[in-house]
Design a protein around this nucleic acid. Structure first.
Length: 585
DNA sequence: CATCTAACTTAATCAACCA
DNA sequence: TGGTTGATTAAGTTAGATG
């Protein structure tokens, strides 16, 4: 199986632009997923991120995999008894992803795109991701929510099929109650975000519809963490037969949203401060192949996708797989599924404000982001008018460098990450995919997990950079977003390293001292990766799992392993930047 | 070509934030 | 406290990868 494409998405023909390239998981990856699934079919963000890093795939892919897996299992075992998730207990202790703050200007961009195309394909989403600096998966969710709440015209059937005309529809508005009014669109188009639009009018329409709807559907559900179980069967859709249609054409956003051209995008990059929210606590350094930095919007380097980079290279670069020790990274390190109460964030303060974004805000890569993502917490989420005015005028809001409070304190990722994660897992399960029928597993056996010798960090970087040339390194965890960061003219190694570390022109710190990971490095030889541990323990040993496909994937960028950057380090980086407004004020 | 399964969609909810 | 809206889940569909 996994043979050919080694792990990645196929490079094949896909309509680029419409759907994301299908990811082909390797056996070893599946085994790992399977093992975790048995332990906890409902992993929280921390666990998903870990897994993603370990597997070299984007967190969003992990999430989808779990979704599909749950579904499959359910079907299979159709035992209504709910074996799964008893809810209540079980897994629910893990935190969910922190809410992503979307600024007004980002909203504006999204809204514009939405009016043009309610069902943007992967290419369009990625483009939006680049423009806004919001991870592609978040964009996808945004569209999902938006469609649900702004039922424009006809509903489309259950499937994904976009209605015919879909694209067209953007403009059309039926007058469904829920439909956004023309006015609304006008407003939106003009740059005023509806959401926060003060104007009661327009936006209101749809909101009203939504309210009604809500009223009509009182939430019955019960409680419980997560909605899960509560809902009855069904729901599903129903109706409508969609006509499968081709999905959209050109990425709308692109074409039409000139104003936001990447280059000049709006806010021309807000100074880091904004950009990196301060809070940004976690930013990941890539450990691998592609990985490159950042969780913060990287605005530092603009990389353009070189043609080369985009090419699906046939030969995937050797996968640099790196194992990232969980280490500090995720907040939740503690037992993931164990309800541990504090497990998740460092008790630190929370970022209440800034949410540390779990994922890289950045678009992966590429682009200059426009907005720093979330507004600084302190700022009132939207300054609304001002913001709007600025946005409208093209002045773009730069965001105030907000003094971030504490920077987010939260930040700290540094939880020591116990290897226990794995240990517990293994012990608990015995791992193996016992239940998993997966034929694969067995097959794999044999090989080894990974890391042959676990290359040094530097080595990995080198590899990564190498690869970078042909592939896109991924930036954030979400890498999927696609950023391709291609390093343009093949910069020197040093440059690349700098880029990787997110330090732009700075005199790069040597790796050793690299600010990036001072404390921990992703690839510390000594720390085994989750997968590795699992494999070893379970004896699943699998094939040399090489590469994360990520590297290979063009689009991709998948996230790759990243290591978190400590706040201090982050600050240091900020300091190094020329215009950086001071770090936390 | 059939099967498996990643990717997506809608709908319903939960939950963080803000006024 | 309620409204808005991001995140998650279930259920169903579409379509790429494989045998």
């Amino acid at each position: 199986m996994a043979s050919s494409s080694s792990s990645s998405t196929s490079g094949g023909p896909i309509a680029r632009g419409s759907r994301r390239r299908r990811l082909v998981l390797k056996l070893s990856q599946k085994d790992t997923l399977q093992a975790l699934f048995q332990q906890n079919p409902y992993p929280g963000i921390a666990t998903r991120e870990r897994l993603a890093r370990e597997l070299g795939i984007a967190e969003s892919r992990v999430q989808v995999w779990f979704q599909n897996q749950r579904r499959r299992r359910l079907k299979q075992s159709r035992s209504p008894s709910a074996n799964m998730r008893q809810d209540g207990e079980g897994a629910p202790g893990e935190a969910r992803r922190k809410r992503t703050a979307i600024s007004p200007s980002q909203t504006r961009i999204l809204v514009q795109a939405f009016t043009r195309d309610r069902f943007p394909g992967i290419a369009a989403r990625e483009e939006l991701a680049r423009q806004t600096g919001i991870p592609e998966p978040r964009i996808q969710i945004w569209f999902q929510n938006r469609r649900a709440r702004h039922p424009q015209q006809r509903a489309r059937g259950p499937g994904n099929a976009p209605s015919p005309g879909a694209a067209a529809d953007a403009g059309a508005h039926p007058a469904l109650p829920g439909t956004a009014s023309i006015l609304e669109e006008f407003v939106e188009a003009t740059g005023i975000p509806d959401t926060q639009a003060p104007s009661p009018g327009a936006a209101a329409d749809s909101e009203i519809w939504f309210q009604n709807r809500r009223a009509r559907h009182p939430q019955q559900s019960a409680r419980g963490p997560g909605n899960v179980r509560a809902r009855g069967p069904g729901g599903a859709s129903a109706t409508t037969a969609p006509a499968p249609e081709d999905r959209r054409a050109p990425p709308a956003v692109h074409s039409t949203s000139p104003p936001l051209g990447p280059s000049q995008t709006q806010e021309s990059m807000p100074p880091l401060a904004a950009a990196a929210p301060l809070g940004a606590p976690t930013f990941w350094v890539p450990g691998t192949a592609s990985g490159v930095c950042v969780g913060q919007p990287l605005m530092f380097f603009v990389i353009q996708p070189s043609p080369m980079a985009l090419q699906p290279s046939e030969k995937p670069p050797p996968p640099p797989q790196v194992a990232v020790p969980w280490a500090a990274c995720s907040p939740a390190d503690t037992a993931p599924w164990q309800p541990g109460p504090g497990a998740i964030l460092p008790p630190l303060q929370p970022e209440t404000h800034i949410r540390r974004r779990p994922e890289s805000p950045v678009a992966e890569g590429t682009a200059p982001l426009l907005e720093p993502q979330p507004h600084p917490p302190s700022l009132p989420r939207s300054t609304s008018l001002l913001d709007e005015l600025l946005a409208a005028t093209g002045i773009l809001e730069t965001q105030a460098p907000s003094p971030e409070p504490g920077a987010d304190a939260g930040v700290h990722p540094a939880l020591p990450d116990p290897p226990s994660f794995l240990d517990e897992l293994l012990e608990a399960t015995g791992l193996g995919s016992s239940q998993a029928p997966s034929p694969g597993a067995a097959a794999d056996a044999g090989a080894h997990p990974a890391l042959p010798g676990t290359p040094s960090f530097l080595g990995q970087l080198l590899e990564a950079t190498d690869i970078a040339a042909s592939q896109a390194p991924s930036l954030g965890p979400y890498a999927d977003a696609g950023a391709h960061l291609a390093l343009p003219g093949s910069p020197s190694l040093q440059d690349e390293l700098l880029a990787v570390t997110c330090i732009p022109g700075s005199p790069g710190p040597s790796l050793g001292s690299s600010p990036v990971i001072p404390g921990y490095h992703p690839a510390l030889p000594g720390s085994p990766s989750l997968l590795e541990e699992i494999m070893a323990a379970s004896s699943i040993q699998d094939t040399p799992w090489s590469s994360p496909r990520a590297a290979a994937d063009e689009e991709g960028v998948e996230a790759i392993l990243e290591a978190p950057l400590r706040e201090e380090d982050y600050q240091a980086l900020l300091d190094m930047l020329p215009g950086s407004p001071g770090p936390r004020a």
